[in-house]
């Protein structure tokens, strides 16, 4: 499967989705003007990956900031991971947050409450 790789910017996260390895990562900030436009290709890639996912998929999520326009899109990304889980494949969502960034920790907890897939919260120093 084609690698989805988007360089991060001041307003958009770095995206590295490696379908062959089952390793997906989102990192940085997500404060674009039009979140849906930015996340559309990511949704499309995931929809294709859903057809034949790896035995194990690990998703690394490490945001510095995201705006509320992105929050729904991030949920839609993670909901797709849920579907891989439902289909009986191994998945793990790893949500990283900076030490002392309680807001980002809570954001992870909020998502975790809306999802079925295994979800780990990890503090980074």
């Amino acid at each position: 499967m084609k690698l989805l790789s988007l360089e991060g910017s001041n307003i958009t996260p770095e995206i590295k989705f490696d379908g062959d390895m089952g390793k997906l990562s989102l990192k940085g900030r997500s404060i674009p003007e039009n979140a849906l436009e930015f996340y559309q290709p990511i949704f499309e890639w995931l929809d294709e990956y859903l057809n034949s996912p790896q035995q194990k998929t690990i998703v690394h999520v490490q945001f510095d900031y995201f705006n509320t326009s992105s929050s729904k899109c991030i949920l839609d990304v993670l909901k797709r991971i849920d579907r891989i889980d439902e289909a009986g494949h191994d998945v793990l969502i790893k949500w990283y947050y900076d030490e002392n960034d309680e807001d980002m920790m809570e954001a992870g907890e909020d998502y975790s409450a809306l999802l079925e897939a295994p979800f780990e919260l990890l503090e980074i120093e």
Partner: peptide, 9 residues
Amino acid sequence: SEKGGGGLG
């Protein structure tokens, strides 16, 4: 609504 954020702001 995906666009407006639904008042989450």
